[in-house]
């Protein structure tokens, strides 16, 4: 257990956290604005991967697959929000079950469309192999994941802090009654946020597809981990999602490397602890 070990493990943990951030940032935004616990978010992630595979099969372009898959998933999310979630109103339990129902529907649809095989997205050659730095091998794809998360995180932050839309969203997060009072169309804000969340999940699915594979069941494997991020970071907070992703990525990685017997416990126990001490998570607000 020398410095090399710690360095490379930390790097691995951060890169995994970067992938989680793509998924969790959408989840947390949806929660923050709409108070919806979206259990079909894992399905969005998986669908993103599948759509990307189709795009790659049709056009051969991985670069094109990124935005197309994310956009397709965003449209699915948008429709789901407009047609169904809207009608349920504010009732956490019913929202949860509705989104679970959709998760099952998506699962079956994916199985019918893409089959049950274990698929894998092949990234461009440029992102394969690894960079050697000081005798350590840093896989290119992991570097790419970190870069993507940073870019996406920055864009989200700029949008939230510097634009009018962002101000409206923040107002809706803080107090949707008040926001409506000052003339913000919260319904449209909700629609936008839900689509954005789905977009990010779909994007995550494409990026993650080359790393985790694309296969039935991935949706419900990744979902609880994304929730761990959101719960630790604080529901509704973008900063929280970033910090939470790092914590979970590192906890997961070091947990597996150092305490394999209780590795998932090391992931969820801190979550419970944080919730017990600060029920709103690290950066969440009451």
């Amino acid at each position: 257990m020398n410095t090399q070990f710690w360095l490379i493990q930390a790097f691995n943990g951060i890169s995994y956290g970067a992938l989680l951030f793509l998924l969790a940032s959408g989840l947390t935004l949806i929660f923050g604005v709409m108070r919806i616990v979206n259990l079909s978010h894992g399905a969005y992630f998986l669908l993103g991967g599948y759509v990307a595979l189709s795009v790659i099969a049709a056009t051969g372009s991985w670069l094109l697959a990124l935005p197309v898959a994310a956009a397709v998933v965003a449209v699915i999310g948008l429709l789901m929000e407009r047609i169904f979630l809207r009608r349920v109103g504010f009732d956490p339990l019913r929202q949860v079950l509705l989104t679970v129902g959709f998760a099952f529907l998506f699962q079956q649809a994916a199985l019918d469309i893409w089959g049950g095989d274990n698929l894998d997205i092949t990234p461009p050659d440029m992102l394969r192999g690894s960079t050697v730095l000081g005798g350590l091998h840093f896989p290119m794809y992991r570097i790419f994941m970190i870069a993507t998360a940073i870019v996406v995180g920055t864009i989200l932050w700029l949008m939230m802090e510097k634009t009018r839309a962002g101000a409206m969203i923040r107002a809706a997060v803080d107090d949707s009654e008040m926001a409506r009072g000052v003339g913000i169309d919260t319904s449209r804000v909700s629609m936008f946020i839900f689509a954005l969340g789905a977009f990010l999940a779909g994007l995550g699915g494409v990026v993650g597809g080359a790393f985790l594979g694309v296969y039935p069941g991935l949706d419900f494997e990744i979902l609880p981990i994304a929730f761990a991020v959101v719960i630790i970071g604080g529901m509704g907070s973008l900063t929280g999602a970033a910090v939470g992703s790092l914590i979970v990525g590192l906890a997961d990685n070091f947990g597996k490397a150092l305490f394999p017997e209780i590795s998932y416990f090391t992931l969820y126990a801190p979550m419970v602890l944080i919730l017990a001490l600060k029920p709103t998570g690290l950066f969440g607000r009451e």
Binding site: F31, R35, V37, P92, L93, V96, P224, F227, A228, I231, M235, Y264, F265, Y268, A269, M271, V272, L275, P279, T280
Partner: peptide, 13 residues
């Protein structure tokens, strides 16, 4: 919602 989330976390433990 918080109750939902915390019981989810406990179940995952």
């Amino acid at each position: 919602v918080s109750f939902l989330m915390i019981t989810l976390a406990l179940g995952m433990c």
